[in-house]
Amino acid sequence: MEAKKRSVIAELSTGELGFLVTEVRNHLLAGVERELEPLQITAAQFVVLNSIMSGKGRTLSEFCRLLGYDSGAMTRLLDRIEAKGIIRRVENPADRRSHIVELTDQGKAVFPQARLGTEVAIRRLLAGFSENDAEALRAMLKRILANAAEG
Score class of each variant (00 low, 15 high):
E37F: 07
A127F: 15
I144L: 15
A148W: 00
E135F: 15
Q113T: 04
A148T: 06
Y69A: 02
R115A: 13
R96P: 11
L141R: 02
M53A: 15
A114W: 02
I122A: 09
R58Q: 14
G55F: 10
R80F: 03
R6W: 05
R96W: 10
A44C: 15
E33P: 03
F63L: 01
E150C: 07
T59N: 06
R124F: 13
V90C: 11
S7I: 02
L12T: 00
G55H: 11
S98G: 06
L103Y: 06
I122K: 06
M1V: 02
A146F: 08
E33C: 05
L39Q: 04
N50F: 13
A10F: 11
R65E: 12
A127N: 08
L137R: 04
K4Y: 02
R25W: 15
A148F: 02
S13Q: 12
L116N: 12
A43I: 06
M1S: 04
F46Q: 03
G117V: 06
F63C: 02
T42M: 09
R6E: 14
A148E: 10
M1D: 08
A149H: 12
L20D: 14
N147L: 14
P93A: 09
S98F: 11
T22Y: 11
D70S: 10
L141C: 10
G55N: 13
G85V: 02
R58I: 14
L126E: 09
R65I: 00
G31M: 05
Y69K: 03
T22H: 10
R123K: 10
L36N: 01
F63Y: 01
R88W: 07
E33T: 09
A149I: 00
L29N: 10
R124P: 04
V21F: 09
A83E: 13
P38C: 08
A139M: 11
R97L: 12
A10M: 07
S61A: 15
E2F: 07
Q113C: 10
I81F: 01
I41Q: 03
T104P: 06
E16T: 06
D70A: 08
Y69G: 04
L145T: 07
D70T: 05
E150N: 00
L77M: 04
E2T: 04
V21Q: 09
M1G: 12
K108C: 12
N92A: 11
Q113R: 12
E131S: 14
R123M: 10
D70N: 13
N147D: 07
Q45D: 08
L49K: 03
V21S: 12
G57Q: 00
A3T: 00
E35V: 03
